[in-house]
Nucleic acid binder design. Structure first.
Length: 877
RNA sequence: GGGGAUUUAGCUCAGUUGGUCAGAGCACCUGCCUUGCACGCAGGGGGUCAAGGGUUCGACUCCCUUAAUCUCCA
């Protein structure tokens, strides 16, 4: 059976069991700092289990894209080395929310595996929770009974499992329960006869593997640690799709299934290196196949590779693939992007977002590959230089600090450094490298450690209510607080029962303002979000914590921010109108000062297009379109309203829809009541930010007004200076042309004048021994010219000692220059000389031994200074 | 969140302890050479040295702030 058929079979099977089939949630998670990527099938249903909102359907099944590359589950460095680790995988799952429980979950799992997929039951093993006396939880006999009715001969096929393997918990607190895992033995008959499978379950044997975990959520873990029975019981299951395919297709490796083989085959063709036979090459092909999947899906989900957070994780994954291609497959040119068609061919049907965004995915990957290859090239050059230097000194140990600098600052992989060392018969001081890395780790940990103190609860409040959509002031009480120390500065985090303060989210920066009670007033400098907590960052702790406070948002800043946020929506809409529907948001920043919007587009936005977009937005502003906001709208309904679906929305989630006429977006931010509040919209810059992504920055309202006024002021100044009512641009062009002509003339004259001055100085020059002293005070000569003249003299006459002074604009300047022969024979030092005489002009100076300059505030002393310098020079000759 | 680095001509980058230091290559323009193209030769235009402050007689260079980008750690 092909992989696509297996997936289809799973979904169809549960469809017949009255399950609602839902699409996979995006892999990239927004607005949850504890989790960057979806790492399990149940992520998108977390809120249902937590009881935060009811399930829209009692039975659901799906295939969920998951990523395990950060945090607790980090498989990245394992991928490729073996046959079963992945960064991205699909999780097949079926769920019951307060509906069916253990009986059906077990029976259906059994039916699906044995009847639908035809896995022989003697190869199947089921584990059940053995119980825990400390927790006072008995063995899961209920599950064992159901399994007992499935197997024809249950002995040795139903096994007890420990708390570690068979009791599932979401976190420290919250829903949890026993689980039952299904393992499959895919060894040959001989091997199975020699050693029964039940002895190998949960021992890490690569061919006796867990494929499905059925979790029975029946308890709630309370803060004190005790378990209480839940009124509603849930089922949460997850089956690794790639593993399942390996079992069904009778392969020994996930990478041998038809999920990966087309990709690996394409990789072999593009690189010209076959798969099979060479460990290094095979590893590289597997790495590339796995990582391409991950990166392509992430980009399709709206997460571009970037320099921080989730985007940086994606960048590193891609770079790991490039690195393997570079070292093991000798690929020095971008090639991974060429494999995309193969991925689309095998997965495009199930995940249409891939083909829909093929162009941008290809471009982004190509650009990233190129950038990293460049980084590698730079690193190689640096290493070559170091190696050459070390060779000169006769050393053959490459310092760890150098390797660390290459790695830390320039991103050059250390294993590549090692490889190059081997090629050069040198060794890397790994010990020192690790030391440097550890000090960096400690530094980061220290920083993280001092940050947050424990929360102190004042009033028990479950969820802060955000009241800031329609007001900027409210009466609040403090729910909890904590002290946070960072870089020696103490700040206070406050959580209220309700708040008008908007917490930074969705690109919109947090509100600032103050809270007050009686005579006390505490400033709130920023507002941030941590999971569902809205945290107000205050400069100090209020005196009376239990008092009632007036919370006041800086309404001017808020208004400016709202202006910018609404303008962002209008511009998004206008961009799609003017340059096309391919425009999709790739990033957004909204502050009181400005707005910044990144979006997919493949060429420069022309002046005309920018003007049209600006024009269109201003039209919408002038039309005074009134906002329509729908809170708690089901996702499906929002999409039906024509909302531009952004990323990070989960199935079943209630969303907030903000619309201004034709502009309809899902958005949690604050907006103006009607577009005319924005006043004016003005684009200030446009540029590239990554391959296929452009960035526009703009301002609104009073900021736009002052931006425009600044420009007009400059224009006024220009036309004023031109003293002409005609076209200033034409006038200036004329002026520039005249100016260049004049400059050329002046340059010529200056050369002549300098020559004249020179000849005058030459005429007055005095010979002393083997040197000639040129001296004098010139009139109104700028320091640069003075230098030029002195320089010319010292070049034309090697025996010259030049001492010149000049006053201009109330400032005095001196220059001393020595011709080459003069410098040698006289042992004079220009710096010494100029320092000796510069006090005469109330200044100081310096330079090089053959040429020094000085400046001062007393032009009257110029003659004195020059005379003194001449006298000093003469004395030394 | 913390550390390191980068920002100089349209592009890729040099620029030493502050002082004839604003440069190179490519690209561009003009002319010559060539049947044409590429090459070659000669000449030329193009810079708020990221932005804003400060120190200094003098700042691309030192200090501070800000922004963007790169990179490592958490």
């Amino acid at each position: 059976m092909k992989a696509n058929e297996i997936r289809e079979e799973f979904l169809n099977f549960f469809r017949t069991k009255e399950h609602r089939i839902v699409p996979s949630a995006p892999m990239v998670i927004k607005n949850d700092p504890t989790l960057m990527f979806t790492n399990a099938g149940m992520n998108q249903f977390k809120d249902i289990f937590l009881g935060n909102h009811p399930a829209a359907y009692k039975r659901i099944a799906n295939s969920q894209k998951c990523l395990r590359v950060s945090g607790k589950h980090n498989d990245l460095e394992e991928v490729g080395l073996d046959t079963y680790h992945h960064t991205m995988f699909e999780m097949l799952g079926n769920w019951s929310f307060g509906d069916y429980f253990k009986k059906e979950a077990i029976e259906w799992a059994w039916e699906f595996l044995t009847s639908r997929l035809g896995i022989p039951q003697e190869r199947i093993y089921a584990t059940v929770f053995e119980g825990d006396s400390e927790e006072d939880v008995p063995r899961d006999d209920e599950a064992a009974d159901h399994w007992g009715r499935c197997f024809a001969s249950p002995e040795n096929h139903i096994l007890n499992g420990s708390k570690k393997d068979n009791f599932w918990e979401m976190g420290e607190t919250g829903p949890c329960g026993p689980c039952s895992e299904i393992h499959v033995d895919i060894r040959s008959d001989e091997e199975r006869a020699a050693r029964p499978g039940h002895l190998l379950v949960n021992t890490g044997h690569p061919q006796v593997i867990e494929i499905w975990n059925l979790v029975f959520i029946q308890y709630n873990r309370r803060a004190g640690g005790e378990l209480e029975l839940l009124p509603e019981k849930h089922v949460d299951t997850g089956m690794g799709f790639e593993r399942l395919c390996m079992v069904i297709q009778d392969k020994k490796s996930n990478y041998d299934t038809d999920i990966f083989q087309p990709l690996i085959a394409a990789s072999a063709v593009v690189t010209g290196k076959p798969y099979g036979g060479s460990q290094a090459r095979d590893t590289a092909h597997r790495v590339i196949a796995d990582h391409l999947r991950t990166v392509a899906f992430s980009i399709a989900d709206g997460q571009l590779p970037s320099n921080n957070k989730a985007g940086y994780v994606i960048r590193r994954i891609l770079r790991r693939a490039v690195r393997y291609g570079y070292t093991s497959l000798e690929m020095t040119e971008p090639f991974i992007h060429k494999l995309l068609p193969s991925l689309i061919e095998s997965m495009g049907d199930q995940y249409p977002e891939l083909s829909a965004q093929q162009e941008i995915i290809t471009r982004v990957i190509f650009e990233e590959e190129q950038a990293f290859l460049k980084t590698l090239g730079k690193g190689l050059k640096m290493i070559e230089r170091r190696v050459a230097a070390l060779r000169k000194e006769g050393k053959n140990i490459f310092p760890g600090s150098d390797a660390f600098e290459l790695f830390d600052t320039y991103g050059f992989p250390v294993d590549l450094t090692q490889l190059i060392m081997r090629e050069n018969n040198m060794t890397l001081d790994e010990e020192a490298f690790r030391r440097e890395l550890n000090t960096q780790k400690e530094r980061s940990r220290d920083d993280a450690a001092v940050t947050a103190g424990d929360w102190v609860v004042v009033h028990d409040v479950e969820n802060t209510l955000f009241t800031g959509y329609d007001r900027t002031e409210d009466n609040i009480t403090i729910a909890r607080y904590r002290k946070v120390v960072s870089r020696g500065k103490e700040a206070i985090h406050l959580v209220f029962d309700k708040t008008p303060f908007y917490a930074e989210s969705g690109g919109q920066t947090g509100d600032r303002g103050f809270i007050s009670s009686g005579s006390e007033k505490v400033a709130v400098t920023d507002t941030v979000r941590e999971n569902n907590l809205i945290i107000h960052i205050a400069e100090k702790l209020p005196g009376n914590l239990s008092a009632s406070f007036r919370a006041v948002v800086d309404s001017e800043a808020r208004q400016d921010t709202s202006n910018n946020h609404t303008a962002t929506h209008l511009m998004h809409h206008a961009l799609r109108e003017v340059i096309g529907k391919h425009v999709e948001q790739k990033g957004s920043l909204v502050t009181p000062e400005r707005l910044r919007f990144d979006f997919s587009h493949f060429s420069q936005v022309t002046q005309e297009e920018l003007a049209a977009v600006e024009q269109r937005v201003n039209e919408m502003i002038m039309k005074n379109i009134v906002s329509e906001v729908y809170h708690d709208t089901p996702m499906e309904q929002a999409l039906a309203m024509g909302a531009i679906a952004l990323f990070g929305e989960k199935y079943g989630e209630k969303v907030r829809v903000v619309s201004f006429g034709e502009s309809v977006e899902l958005c949690g931010g604050t907006h103006v009541e009607s577009t005319s509040r924005i006043g004016i919209f003005k684009i200030t810059s446009e540029g590239a930010v990554a391959a296929g992504v452009r960035r526009i920055e703009a301002v609104t309202g009073r900021r736009a007004l002052s931006f425009i006024n600044e420009k007009l002021k400059t224009l006024d100044q220009i036309t004023g200076m031109l003293r002409s009512t005609g076209n200033p641009a034409a006038n200036i062009t004329k002026l520039i042309n005249e100016n260049t002509a004049l400059k050329n003339t002046i340059e010529k004259m200056r050369v002549e004048a300098a020559a004249a001055v020179r000849s005058e100085l030459t005429a007055r020059a005095v010979t002393r021994g083997s040197c000639r002293i040129y001296s004098g005070v010139l009139e109104e000569t700028p320091p640069e010219t003075l230098k030029t003249i002195a320089h010319q003299i010292r070049q034309s006459d090697g025996t010259s000692i030049v001492i010149l002074g000049s006053a201009i604009e109330g400032k005095a300047s001196l220059v001393v220059a020595l011709g080459e022969e003069a410098a040698e024979s006289s042992h004079l030092d220009a710096v010494e000389l100029i320092k000796a005489v510069s006090p005469e002009i109330s200044g100081g100076g310096g330079g090089q031994p053959f040429m020094a300059t000085a400046g001062g505030k007393r032009p009257e002393g110029l003659n004195e200074a020059v005379d003194k310098a001449v006298a000093l020079a003469q004395k030394r000759l």
